[in-house]
């Protein structure tokens, strides 16, 4: 009986010793909380709570254009991304909204004397080219790749960290654009060299066309929950420019040749929410 008890006690001690030593043999690092910088520099961001791997990512945004000169864009955008691993995703980007002319166009037409409300005689009596970069983006749909190399976290004053991703994306597809003539009237100028109906946008020529479109951009995802995130993106939508050259501005009907040179840019700021499914 005594021998039996001693044998059990010895076996228990051996098991305890084995359990104590086993972790150090199997990899003791995994058992200790990683250091975050006080003792040695960490190799990575510790305690990542969120993963993109194999997930579908849907983003809904309000989109507005930056650096507006002659045109502007306000609308909504949708992104759908299917992750392939943690870093890459197939990126589908769609945007639609109002592509309009800015007040600067109204001022240019007024100063040129095309607007009949301007008491001065119009000055557009020569032959020349209309203004470039007057294509207003109405809608675009593109497919591309998204690359998410950065995972991080930042601390607000509350000391609670906010986890985030930074990503870049690029794609190709189609852009539906309204190409506007800024100085070319729908009809021939009147006796005062004013554009008949030139106080309204319908007095000038415009054309809606579908062109090949590209986009490059980047964004920030601020995680709220495993499902929800706040999203901020910048996407520069590019498409071939088009405008009229050799226009007889005084008698524009039947004159002018369509010139395609250069690329128009519509940089969009996208603010919205994302869903990780």
């Amino acid at each position: 009986m005594r021998t039996n008890t001693n044998a059990r006690r010895g076996l228990g001690m051996l098991l305890s010793l084995a359990l104590a030593l086993l972790p150090s043999v199997a990899g003791a690092k995994s058992l200790l909380p990683p250091d975050e910088g006080f003792m040695k520099e960490p190799k990575s961001v510790a305690y990542r709570l969120y993963s993109l791997s194999s997930k579908s990512d849907i983003g809904l945004y309000y989109a507005l254009s930056m650096k507006n000169k002659l045109t502007q864009h306000n609308g909504g955008a949708l992104t759908f991304d299917q992750q392939i691993g943690e870093y890459f995703a197939i990126d589908v980007f769609a945007d639609a909204g109002a592509g309009t002319l800015t007040n600067l166009v109204t001022n240019i037409r007024f100063e040129a004397g095309l607007d009949p409300t301007n008491p001065s005689r119009g000055r557009m009596t020569t032959t020349g080219s209309d203004l470039a970069d007057a294509g207003a983006l109405i809608a675009t749909g593109q497919v591309g790749l998204r690359f998410t190399p950065i995972y991080g976290k930042m601390s607000l004053s509350s000391e609670l960290p906010v986890h985030f991703n930074f990503y870049v994306a690029a794609g190709v597809g189609a852009a539906y654009v309204q190409f506007n003539d800024i100085l070319t009237c729908q009809s021939n100028l009147d006796g005062n060299n004013h554009c008949p109906g030139g106080s309204s946008p319908s007095g000038y020529r415009s054309q809606n066309l579908t062109k090949v479109g590209f986009n490059v951009g980047g964004g920030l995802r601020l995680y709220i929950t495993q499902l929800l995130s706040l999203r901020v993106e910048v996407r520069d939508v590019l498409f071939p420019d088009q405008y009229l050259a050799d226009v007889n501005f005084k008698s524009p009907v039947g004159t002018g040749t369509v010139t395609s040179s250069g690329v128009s840019q519509t940089p969009l700021v996208l603010l919205g929410i994302g869903f990780l499914l």
Binding site: K43, S44, V45, P149, Y151, K153, M154, V162, F164, F166
Partner: peptide, 13 residues
């Protein structure tokens, strides 16, 4: 007021 850290892949912080 805001500080943080990020990782480029897993190669460093």
């Amino acid at each position: 007021p805001i500080y943080g850290k990020f990782a480029w892949f897993n190669s460093g912080v």
